[in-house]
């Protein structure tokens, strides 16, 4: 097991965010973490990443396939990008900080994959939200982490970039990474998940295999209204 969380509860000031959370992250598995806005998904992910201490409970990291402490790649709401550095300098800084050996061609390859190759030498200050997010993805995937914790990585991405994102996530899973993915596009992304964790009513209301998860049964998910047909309007024209 890469990550094991037990009996997590968290308060923000006097407000209870969630309690009684237990999660296991095996290698090579993709868990989708879902729930309504404000259910505490991002907070839970930060606790799993070790960024915040839970009010109670524990998070333990196990070992990766090489018997080492697993490396954690975290992608949050913020991009971790220094606006005054170029795209390439940003990537160089983070890989060097993590002590991760990366060659020049690796940088070129990842920038190519996230379609930022032409902007490698440009300062990130001028990047659009989508470009910054793609650079952020490049940073996370370049680290080749064993545990990937992704908080709405698709934010700001267009359709083509979203496809790139999905491809990278699945490739990382196939290489044995354990992934927890918070997504706002649940219906679409559920197909790729191995398991689902659904936060509702300050608890994990559902935690199990993705196949057993029925989105329509969850109270906090708005059901799409069917389009009004001409018949329903009593045959009146639009």
């Amino acid at each position: 097991m890469l990550l094991r969380a037990r009996d997590l509860a968290h308060f923000y000031g006097p407000r209870l965010i969630f309690k009684d959370i237990c999660l296991d992250l095996p290698p090579g598995a993709l868990t989708v973490l879902a729930g309504a806005n404000g259910a505490g998904k991002s907070t839970l992910l930060k606790i799993l990443a070790g960024l915040i201490r839970p009010s109670t409970g524990s998070v333990e990291t196990g070992e990766n396939s090489r018997g080492q402490k697993p490396r954690i790649g975290y992608l949050g709401h913020q991009t971790f990008i220094y606006p005054e550095l170029t795209a390439l300098e940003n990537l160089r800084f983070w890989t060097s900080l993590h002590g991760h050996a990366v060659t020049g061609s690796d940088y070129a390859a990842i920038l190519e994959r996230v379609e930022l190759a032409p902007f490698a030498e440009e300062k990130a200050r001028g990047f659009s939200r989508g470009m910054a997010q793609r650079l952020n993805l490049a940073r996370v995937f370049l680290l080749e982490a064993d545990i990937l914790l992704l908080d709405e990585p698709g934010t700001g991405l267009d359709l083509r970039s979203s496809a790139v994102l999905l491809r990278e996530i699945l490739a990382a899973r196939d290489k044995g990474a354990g992934i927890i993915w918070i997504t706002h596009n649940l219906e679409e992304d559920l197909r790729h998940a191995d398991s689902v964790a659904f936060l509702e009513g300050k608890r994990l209301a559902f935690y199990g295999p993705a196949k057993a998860f029925r989105l329509s049964e969850r109270a906090s998910v708005p059901r799409p209204e069917p389009f009004e047909t001409r018949e329903a309007r009593g045959g009146e024209p639009c």
């Binding site: 975290y74 991009t79 971790f80 900080l97």
Partner: peptide, 16 residues
């Protein structure tokens, strides 16, 4: 410098 885009989290997560 570390507060612009949440880089502080990234620094703390580094293995060093």
């Amino acid at each position: 410098h570390e507060e612009v885009n949440g880089q502080r989290q990234g620094l703390v997560l580094a293995p060093a």
